[in-house]
Each structure stands twice: as C-alpha cells, then as structure tokens.
Amino acid sequence: MNQDDEPRPARRHADGTESSRASRSWWDRNADDYQREHGTFLGGTGGGRFVWGPEGLDEERAGLLGPVAELAGRSVLEIGAGAAQCSRWLAARGARPVALDISHRQLRHALPAGPGAGPAFPLVQADVGALPFAPGSFDLACSSYGALPFVADPVRVLREVHRVLRPGARWVFSVTHPIRWAFPDEPGPEGLTATSSYFDRTPYVEQDERGRAVYVEHHRTLGDRVRDLVAAGFRLVDLVEPEWPAENRQEWGGWSPLRGRLIPGTAVFVCERG
C-alpha cells in the first residue's frame, strides 16, 4: 500500500451507520492478522481461556459471570465474539453459548479445522444494535472488548442486551479504561503524559483519502458508562480495574507492563438486569 493510502486519524462525529459500516469492514480486513498476533493469548482454538483484556484477567479465577461450577446448562450470549474464544471456554464448562459478531471473517476463525466440522455452538453475524433473538432468551451475556467501544449509541445496544436477557440475569463487559483517552496510545514513556481532555467525547476516526471512515472508536467517561447502564435498566454490581500482573511482559498496542503498573488499561462492568 502506498503511504498516501494509509488511513488518516481524525477526531470528528461519526453516526451509527458510519460506525457500523467501518467496524464490519475493518474487522473483515484485519481478522486474520489480529488472530495470528493475539489468538494464542486469547485462548487459541481450544476451550482453555476466557480473558477480559490485555492484562490477562482470567474468568476462571475472577468468576465475574458467577461461580464456574454453576455455568453448566446456562444460555450465554457473547457479544463481539471475534473468534469466539470466550464462547469456547464457556462451552467446555457445560454452558450453552451463542457467539455474535458483526464480522464474518472474525467468525470464520471460530470454525473448527477439518472438512465438514461445525462449531459446537451457534455463530451469528449481526449488528449488536438489533439482536436477532426473542426477549428473555439468555441467562447471561458477556463481551470482552467487543462491540461497545465501536457503537455511536451505547444505550440502544444496552437496551437490546437488556431485552434478550431474563430478569436478574448478569451482563458483564470490558472496554478500554476511559482514563486512557487522555493519554497517547503508546506503550512507552510517551504514553504516560496526558495530552487530551478526558471529557472530550469526540470519536476517534481513521478515514481514507475520500474522508470515509475505515475505523471508528467512541469514548465514554466512567460516569457516562454508569448512566448508560442505568438508563437501559441495569444495576451496576461491580467495576473491576485489573492490575497488570508481573508475569505478563507483553505489549499489545498501547498496553504494556510500564503503563499497566501506573494507570488502568481495562474497565470491566459487572451488571444485573432489572
């Protein structure tokens, strides 16, 4: 690719249609490289891991969805599933997951190897703003860095999640910690100096030479996230800010041991449906 064809970053408005279109095309283009680089850390092709973020917080230990022993038989919707590593972990523990993602190419990575091999659970390509499920279809819902950072109208999405959950069901999702929006997305020392306003909600957009968005990410403050949840009918049970463990020496974009020791990189919201 010519250097002049590289996407140009900008901070500008991006509505729901533009954001959805950009997310679908970006993940379809980049799914192979993403899974090649991060797939093993996220759990590979087996059912061995459910990771909430680059720090490596593992659901096996954290139990944010509830006791692991009680997952068997429960219907779980994974939103923004990617290659469905989390769903594979859930299925291996007896749960009945459904893995949903906007990207067809990401879901292709969820298919087992071998001719004629089918997934052990349903894979659904759909936009999270219009979930193709009946009300009260699921006992649990989860999303590890999926969908929520990329949508223009998070309350609409949260209301959809609320609709498809049964009363009292748990909904747990992780996103980039909002404080990180004040800092450059760099893993080294240059990523430790605040350069932007935490309160600037203008989306981050990468656009092509014609000004069309090819990648969009939306910023919400911590307070925004809580208000969005309440507006959608959820009760916040816990807010988890994982610390960076000493044994994790990887860098993943702007996440790194250096930054992880000083500022949070991930926020995990544990909620229950009202």
Score class of each variant (00 low, 15 high):
P167L: 00
Y34P: 00
G80A: 15
G146Y: 00
H177Q: 06
E186M: 14
L77P: 08
F133R: 13
E241H: 01
P203Y: 10
P178I: 06
V68D: 02
F150C: 04
R210A: 15
L192S: 04
V237L: 15
E37G: 04
A99Q: 04
V164C: 01
L140K: 02
A95H: 06
P97H: 12
T195N: 02
P184L: 10
L71R: 05
D208K: 04
S25H: 01
R61I: 01
P184F: 09
F150N: 10
H13D: 14
R210T: 15
D58N: 12
P184E: 09
A213T: 11
G233D: 00
A182T: 06
S103F: 00
L65R: 14
R49F: 07
I179L: 15
R36M: 08
R108I: 06
N248W: 03
A134M: 02
G114M: 14
Q35R: 07
P115S: 12
Q250A: 09
H162A: 08
G146H: 04
W244C: 03
C271Q: 09
E243Y: 10
A147Y: 04
D5R: 10
G254F: 13
P178W: 01
D224T: 01
R210E: 13
D5W: 13
A130H: 14
C142Q: 06
A10R: 12
F269K: 03
V76E: 10
F138N: 01
L64F: 10
D139T: 03
P132M: 12
N248V: 07
L64E: 09
Q3V: 15
H109R: 15
S143C: 11
H104T: 11
R249Y: 01
A246K: 04
L42N: 13
E160Y: 04
D224K: 03
G63R: 06
Q207R: 11
V128D: 05
S143R: 11
A169Y: 13
V237G: 05
A83T: 00
A69Y: 05
W171Y: 13
G168N: 10
A130Y: 09
R88F: 01
D32S: 14
W181N: 15
R74C: 02
G63A: 13
S25E: 08
Q125A: 15
P257E: 08
G56S: 02
F138S: 03
S25K: 11
A62G: 07
E243M: 00
W27M: 04
C142Y: 10
D238Q: 08
T45A: 12
S196G: 04
P178L: 00
G46F: 07
H38D: 05
A69F: 03
T195K: 08
A81E: 05
N248G: 05
L131E: 03
L158E: 00
H162L: 01
H219E: 05
R227F: 09
R225D: 06
R11I: 09
H38E: 14
L192K: 02
V98F: 00
W255L: 06
P187W: 10
V124I: 12
P203K: 03
W244I: 11
S19Y: 11
P119M: 06
S20R: 14
L71P: 11
Q106N: 15
F138Y: 04
A232N: 05
A62P: 08
T193K: 11
S256G: 01
A126R: 06
D185S: 12
T266H: 06
A147E: 12
F121D: 13
A213V: 09
V226D: 00
A141G: 07
I102G: 12
G260P: 02
N30F: 13
D185E: 14
A22V: 06
